[in-house]
Simulated assay, not measured.
Amino acid sequence: MAPQATAPATTPSLMRRMACWLYEGMLMFGVVFIAGYLFGTLSQTRNAMDNRHALQAFLFVVFGIYFTWFWAKGQTLAMKTWNIRVVDRAGRPISQPRALLRYVLSWLWFLPPLAAVSPFALSGGETTVLVIGWVAVWAILARFHPEQQFWHDALAGTRLVHFEHSKK
C-alpha cells in the first residue's frame, strides 16, 4: 500500500475562525471566574475596585499561561470544537516561545481601541462600540493577507489551519 500524499493545510473560513473566537471568549469566562476567585481569596480583596490593576496584571499572566500552554499543544478546547489548529509557517507544531509571542501579538485585537479611548472620558457603551468595531476591522483585514491569516499570526510566524481529528 503506497503512502497517501497529504493535502496542504487549508485556512479555515473567516466565519469559522470568528465562531471559534467567540466560543473561546465564552470559555474564558470560566478561566476569569476561577482566576478572579483565586486572586480575591489570596489578596483578601473585598471590593472589586481594590487591587484592580493587580487583578488585571494577574489575569494577563493567567491568560498567557492558558493560551501558551494550549497553543504549544496545538489547540485550545474551542479550536478542537471547530477543527482548527495553530501551526508554524511550515505546518509544524509551534514552540512555547512562539506561542507566547502569538499571545502577546493577539492583544492587537483589543489594545488599539483601548489605547485610543484612554485619553477620553467615554462611556462604557461608546468604548464597547469602538472595541467591537476594531475587532470587526481586524478580522476583515485577514482578507488582505495572501493566505487569509490574521495579521497577528503572520507577525508571530503562525497559521490557523483546518485540522480533522482522526477517528480510531
Rank of each mutant, 00 (worst) to 15 (best):
W69C: 03
F63D: 04
L59Q: 07
M79C: 09
A78P: 02
Y103T: 00
V87W: 04
A78N: 04
G74K: 11
K80N: 02
W69A: 12
I84T: 04
A90S: 14
S95I: 03
L105K: 03
A72R: 03
G64R: 10
A90I: 05
V104A: 11
G91D: 10
V104G: 04
D88E: 12
R85W: 07
R85C: 08
G64A: 06
L100R: 03
K80V: 08
K80P: 02
L77G: 07
N83M: 13
A72D: 02
G91W: 11
R89W: 05
T81H: 02
R102T: 01
G64M: 12
R85T: 11
D88S: 10
I84H: 01
V62W: 08
Y66D: 04
A90E: 14
V62N: 05
N83H: 15
R89K: 09
T76H: 07
Y66I: 07
T68W: 02
A78W: 08
W69H: 14
V61F: 14
Y103Q: 01
A72K: 06
V104D: 01
V62M: 11
R92I: 10
W82V: 10
L59C: 11
Y66L: 05
L77C: 03
F60V: 09
Y66Q: 07
D88I: 10
L100M: 15
R85E: 11
K73N: 13
W71I: 06
D88M: 12
A90C: 03
R102K: 12
V86C: 08
V87C: 00
V62F: 04
D88Y: 10
M79R: 14
K80Y: 07
I65R: 13
I65Y: 15
G74S: 14
N83F: 12
L100Q: 03
P97D: 05
T81N: 00
P93F: 06
W82T: 04
K73Q: 15
S106M: 13
V87E: 00
Q96G: 13
W69Q: 07
V104M: 12
L77A: 09
F63A: 13
G91L: 11
